[in-house]
Amino acid sequence: MAILVIAEHDNSALKGATLNAVTAASRMGDDIHLLVAGAGCQAVADEAAKVAGVNKVLLADNAAYEHQLAENLSLLVAELGKDYSHVVAPATTTGKNFMPRVAALLDVAQISDIIRVESADTFVRPIYAGNAIATVQSLDAIKVITVRGTGFDAAAAEGGAAAIEAVGGVHDAGISAFVGEEMAKSDRPELTSAQVIISGGRGMGSGENFALLEKVADKLGAAVGASRAAVDAGFVPNDMQVGQTGKIVAPDLYIAVGISGAIQHLAGMKDSKVIVAINKDEEAPIFQVADYGLVADLFDVLPQLEQQL
């Protein structure tokens, strides 16, 4: 049986996380169908059809799916999912929102946030904020899976030539409605796909001081992240949070500035290739995972760093 992957998109472009989910799916089997559900999203389907390894694109284009409301989307995916061996989505806030509903409607478990595929029914996932790694076997006929992007390389965005098939029938539960959104605008790379990330913590002292980080980020072409403490203190918006309950990242270079290294923060970044810690407290736990540590005042270091890059 084939594998159904649910594409993540904003009705105009495919989101990168979809490509990691396609790679994960390709380890479970080789007949991969990609569902694009949204409104006015033909362009996304066209893009999806080109993804290497995708055999078919299903397009459900209807106002009911415009904002990916979990109530509506889960009804659609559960109905389609009955004919698949696996239903797979990225473990983004969208995937985390609707996929458990799909699992419950299908009366199966969801295996969340997998980082490895051992076989078609056995998956590896972190638990306890990444302090333990569990290998879990599914006993269900249909496997509902969300994929942690950092665990899998992105599938090639070009090279495929899948047919696009329209899906009929509309599911509108009519019990929830989209009111509005405030999306952070940034010219920087997205945190989850950036090669370099520089993150600030409570030690930054204020939102204004994040300008010091941004100047370094500009030099490095880096994304800017934050600890929960920096978000809670109102220095920066929530979408910048890295950690167990924020974004999971694994760039080539992660620079932690004024971040102590709580386990919840480490859970989100300790798979980065190279970690740099800048902290004035030499006992800070972040140094235990850092490849290069600099014990110094960040207000001295950041301007120097900007200059020397």
């Binding site: 638990i127 333990a132 569990a134 269900d140």
Partner: peptide, 20 residues
């Protein structure tokens, strides 16, 4: 039970690097 826990392992430990 819909799943079976086959094993639980510690994560790969990172070695602390150097101080510059």
């Amino acid at each position: 039970a819909h799943t079976q826990l086959l094993k639980v392992e510690p994560p790969a430990e990172r070695q602390a690097g150097i101080k510059v």
